[in-house]
Design a protein around this nucleic acid. Structure first.
Lengths: 130, 130
DNA sequence: TGATTATGTGACCAAATGGTCACATAATCA
DNA sequence: TGATTATGTGACCATTTGGTCACATAATCA
């Protein structure tokens, strides 16, 4: 085994911060990184769906959808309710909110002046040396 | 595939507001899906860094860092300022804010009662059938 | 009961991804 | 000028990933 990078044991020194965070936020990121999975979440946002109902809205196979669902479930983004032989997939927005707290919010608090300076310098520098 | 996305002409257009869709929000998601890249962004949030300064904070090679930077740049998450032979990498929070508007915010507006129902049913169903 | 339908599991494959290296270019300093 | 340092490019490789399929199990319906 030679991929210690994926399961980095901690790296807490850097990643730490205002954490508190989820067991593995990486899973949430990974789940969200795929367009099909984001589409699934969008559909699930309208209303919960059985797996096959979900499949009917995709062009690829049911198995692909199931795989995506498993990833989403592992990330906690989809909660599964069993009803007889049916599997009803619900959207769970909580992990996304955690992402927000850990990531989006801090970035919104970036001092505005730094951003402005940045924008200026970038514009200046990206101008062709004429 | 020859990634035409890379040579985005301007950037100021995106730095603007939440306007008209990002070129490809997929790129932002992909960029954010990797732990190393998120770490880079975290570092950049403290202060802009030259590439080599950035490298010194990672265990893997400079080339890997550069690749990550390129992905981040393509997603608009990192803006590059040239200063002599140095390349100073700045964090650009705008794409993350767009992600927020497109994704997090709508999910926060999910009707609370649906969530509650969901939670109840999940708890009920996941209980062993006694 | 048997047929049908909904979901789950395992093997498999092509493409993308994260990492490596060697080499090239360009700016700075003595 | 030459040496050093910062960054860029291309080839390469192992692993992961998104997709396929065949087959298995379980619940519903006639």
């Amino acid at each position: 085994m030679t991929s210690p990078t994926r399961s980095r044991p901690a790296a807490p020194s850097e990643v730490l911060e205002e954490q508190t965070v989820v067991p593995e936020q990486s899973e949430v990121w990974r789940a969200l990184s795929d367009p099909s999975r984001r589409r699934i979440l969008d559909i699930l946002r309208e209303a919960p769906q059985t797996t096959s109902a979900l499949c009917s809205r995709f062009e690829f196979s049911r198995f692909a959808v199931m795989k995506h669902l498993r990833v989403l479930e592992a990330a906690g983004l989809v909660l599964v309710e069993r009803q007889g032989r049916e599997r009803i997939n619900h959207l769970n927005p909580v992990p996304i909110q955690q992402i927000y707290r850990r990531w989006i919010k801090p970035f919104e608090q970036l001092p505005a002046d730094r951003l402005l300076r940045l924008k200026r310098t970038v514009e200046t520098t990206s101008r062709p040396p004429a």
